[in-house]
């Protein structure tokens, strides 16, 4: 009994002496081994970004965010800009495979062109992260829009406006970009998955605009001449659909034709929602994609797995923007990301 009391007293004394000692040491804190490893794993690594082209909202937005993280964590980040040329992109990818960086972030011009090179790169130990436009080859990671889902959402919105007894007619026009891009092939699949369930909807025109707004304008102009009672239109990209919207506006049919388009959610696109050019703008949210990209880059650079061993896909959530929610949270500017 006595010894127990002694023991308790001793413990109390020990605590009184030791805790402040530990606290004294604590003024300089404890090293977090995970943080140290995180930083040392990442610093000095090399990441290359191969976009379709620099100079447009999506790629500039992602690049701004990726560069910010690279600067913070001390790995090198460089951009190879093929300026919309698939040939130049292929050459850039080949030379990157030779240089063997730790990771290449690839933005595919279509589902086929880079497929074999991406496999080759992984075979050489270079990890591949694809962004927003997929290739047929699944690689270490894909982050971006689910084009099938965008197509379904767009078609659902149009069906809601133009199905039996709702709009001035059941006629819908679709304008696509370049027929071989992931954004076209998968989105069309999504659109027709929905439209096939609604046989009353009649697709009166499906034309490729090559992402050219003036071409989109003249197509919509012609379509409206043929089908003055057109009810809805699905466009594949906000950058070209300013043309589609202008044709509708010039024909004085803004209240009649329901126009859905999609894009990265740049303030320029949102502006066209608030001025009534786009009725619905499906945004794949570039700032969010940039954050996910950065997390994936850090994960892949730290991972001991060999290139091509583990494959991951993440389709990021979409934001449906209409007049009611055009706000700074949904609509970003490049300067804000830098």
């Amino acid at each position: 009994m006595k010894s127990t009391l002694k023991y308790v007293l001793a413990m109390g004394l020990a605590l009184q002496v030791c805790v402040p000692m530990a606290m004294a040491q604590g003024t300089k804190g404890l090293e977090n081994p995970r943080s140290t490893k995180f930083h040392s794993d990442l610093s000095g690594k090399t990441v290359a970004f191969l976009p379709l082209s620099m100079g447009f909202d999506l790629t500039e937005g992602w690049a701004a965010q990726m560069r910010k993280q690279a600067d913070r964590l001390g790995y090198s980040f460089e951009i190879r800009d093929p300026a919309w040329s698939t040939d130049a992109g292929t050459r850039a990818l080949q030379s990157l495979i030779g240089e063997a960086p730790d990771l290449i972030v690839v933005h595919n011009p279509d589902i086929q062109s880079y497929a074999r090179l991406l496999k080759q790169a992984q075979a050489k130990g270079v990890k591949i992260l694809q962004i927003n436009l997929e290739s047929n080859t699944t690689t270490d990671s894909y982050v971006g829009a689910d084009w099938t889902e965008i197509g379904e959402q767009a078609a659902n919105a149009v069906v809601a406006q133009c199905s039996e007894g709702k709009g001035p007619s059941n006629k819908v026009a679709i304008d696509t970009g370049v027929p071989t891009a992931a954004s076209d092939v998968f989105q069309l699949d999504g659109i027709y998955r929905v439209l096939d369930k609604h046989p009353e909807i009649e697709v009166v025109s499906q034309q490729a605009t090559e992402y050219n707004a003036e071409k989109a304008r003249s197509i919509m102009d012609t379509v409206l001449q043929q089908h003055p009672d057109l009810c809805g239109s699905i466009g594949i990209w906000d950058n070209q659909d300013t043309g589609t919207a202008s044709a509708i506006k010039q024909a004085g049919k803004q209240d009649q034709v329901f126009l859905v388009t999609s894009g990265g959610g740049n303030a320029v696109g949102c502006e066209n929602v608030s001025n009534g050019m786009f009725d619905l703008y499906i945004s794949y949210n570039v700032p969010l994609q940039g954050d996910i990209l950065n997390a994936e880059i850090a994960r892949l650079l730290q991972s001991d797995a060999k290139a091509g061993d583990n494959k991951a896909v993440y389709f990021n959530p979409l934001t449906l923007i209409d007049k009611s929610n055009v706000n700074p949270r949904n609509c970003w500017t490049l300067d804000a990301l830098k």
């Binding site: 090559e210 050219n212 003036e214 989109a216 950058n239 300013t242 043309g243």
Partner: peptide, 18 residues
């Protein structure tokens, strides 16, 4: 005229088949 017609101009026309 393009800017007036489509409410925008896209410098990418330089890389197109125009």
């Amino acid at each position: 005229l393009i800017a007036a017609s489509t409410n925008s101009i896209n410098a990418r026309l330089y890389n197109s088949t125009m």
